[in-house]
Computed example of a mutant assay.
Amino acid sequence: MTTSPAAQHADHSSDDIIALVRELVSIESPSRDTAASARIADVLSARFEAIGGTVRREPTSAGTDLVIDVPGTGDPLLFIGHTDTVWPVGALDGEVPWVEDGDVVRGPGAYDMKAGIAVMLEALRTLQPLAVERRRAVRVVLVCDEEIGSPVSGPLLAARARGAAAAIGFESPHPDGALKVGRRGSARVRLSVTGRAAHAALDPEHGISAVDELVDQLLAVRRIVADPALPGPVLCNVGTIAGGARTNVVPAEAAAEIGLRFTDPDTERRVLDALAALHPVREGATVTAEVLSARPAWRASAQDAVLLEQISEAAAGVGQRIEGRPAAGAGDTNLLGGLGLPTVDGFGPRGGGAHAVDEHFLRSSLHDRVALLRAVLTIAAD
């Protein structure tokens, strides 16, 4: 990748870019809200078409994905992002209002990751005056279900990435601005238990408590993930538990959703196999473990290191220093890095509070990221 600082261009002010982020944040787009997904896809389609992109809208059962090709030279760089957020409709008028406080900008989904989409758009906009021979071709993929593990969009990524030279993810960077090269694998597993209902006082012996069985199964899960014989560590979070209806009825159904994180594929396989082999403690109960979504562990490769070095060289040309290291959280770049495509993530602006009420990004980091991306995409004149 040969890069140099981009030619002179007409910068938007920070206020202009912030206005774009606010427009995107104002369209609250929680995962699985297909109507909201279509609305934000409308806005982004128009924005990308205005900078010369060819937009394909790809409706799915989870919402609307966008695939945008922007003309340039060479095999395209693949930009990966998502339009869904963890926040329900109403968060903007409730616990996560839009706030601009000096360098800090807050709002639901602003940091994760609508500001990252704004970085893409602004960098591509500033490059449009350049001849196509002076800028890299780009393919942008914006999915609608990343926050729930990309169960629909994830299987489509490999086809969408076909022909790409490398992938850049626009999730948040490390707190110090370093890029993410390598990420833990993740899986969402639903553990379901069926027992038998009975009156809790008159004939409890005829019942099989699904809740009690679930408690014992979760203890078994704890032993599985803490097994010292596993090749790598496992992060395990029991995120939800549900079961039963009344205190005078032995519960017949119970379930838990579990989030798991892995540093290596072998540990992931062994843990998921052990969960699939769980058997009931109580005679007559049933236990099933269903993998709702999974992203493989992405271990940084030599090709990833080369891509990072190329980005670092481009950064030096615009007076920046860029480093990279592995990250704990998973994302769609796991799917691409795991396939062997040279990949880095974390091209969004700096900030913090992802998935929390203090979610925010730093206004001052927007132009740094735009300048870096512009440098990466600009081809030096001969």
Results as ranks from 00 to 15, higher is better:
residue 1 M to D: 09
residue 1 M to Y: 11
residue 1 M to I: 13
residue 1 M to S: 13
residue 2 T to C: 03
residue 3 T to R: 13
residue 4 S to M: 06
residue 6 A to I: 06
residue 10 A to R: 13
residue 19 A to V: 02
residue 19 A to W: 03
residue 20 L to D: 11
residue 21 V to L: 03
residue 22 R to S: 13
residue 29 S to M: 03
residue 33 D to L: 11
residue 35 A to W: 00
residue 37 S to M: 03
residue 39 R to S: 06
residue 42 D to F: 02
residue 46 A to L: 04
residue 49 E to A: 15
residue 57 R to I: 10
residue 59 P to F: 14
residue 63 G to A: 08
residue 70 V to Y: 10
residue 73 T to S: 14
residue 75 D to K: 09
residue 77 L to A: 11
residue 80 I to N: 08
residue 97 P to A: 12
residue 99 V to H: 11
residue 109 G to Y: 10
residue 116 G to K: 09
residue 117 I to W: 07
residue 120 M to Y: 02
residue 126 T to H: 06
residue 127 L to C: 02
residue 129 P to K: 07
residue 131 A to S: 15
residue 131 A to I: 02
residue 135 R to A: 00
residue 137 A to Y: 01
residue 138 V to R: 05
residue 141 V to L: 06
residue 150 S to Q: 03
residue 162 R to V: 11
residue 163 G to L: 07
residue 169 G to F: 07
residue 177 G to D: 09
residue 187 A to H: 08
residue 207 G to M: 07
residue 211 V to F: 00
residue 222 R to Q: 08
residue 233 P to C: 01
residue 235 L to H: 11
residue 237 N to W: 01
residue 238 V to A: 04
residue 240 T to L: 15
residue 241 I to K: 06
residue 242 A to K: 04
residue 243 G to P: 10
residue 243 G to C: 07
residue 244 G to Q: 11
residue 250 V to D: 05
residue 252 A to F: 01
residue 261 R to V: 08
residue 268 E to W: 03
residue 275 L to C: 04
residue 275 L to W: 05
residue 275 L to N: 06
residue 276 A to Q: 09
residue 278 L to P: 07
residue 281 V to Y: 05
residue 287 V to F: 00
residue 288 T to K: 13
residue 290 E to Q: 07
residue 292 L to C: 10
residue 297 A to C: 04
residue 300 A to L: 12
residue 304 D to T: 13
residue 305 A to K: 08
residue 306 V to A: 15
residue 318 V to C: 15
residue 324 G to W: 15
residue 327 A to F: 14
residue 337 G to A: 09
residue 339 L to A: 15
residue 340 G to P: 14
residue 343 T to N: 10
residue 345 D to I: 08
residue 349 P to D: 12
residue 354 A to L: 11
residue 357 V to I: 13
residue 364 S to G: 12
residue 367 H to K: 05
residue 376 V to K: 02
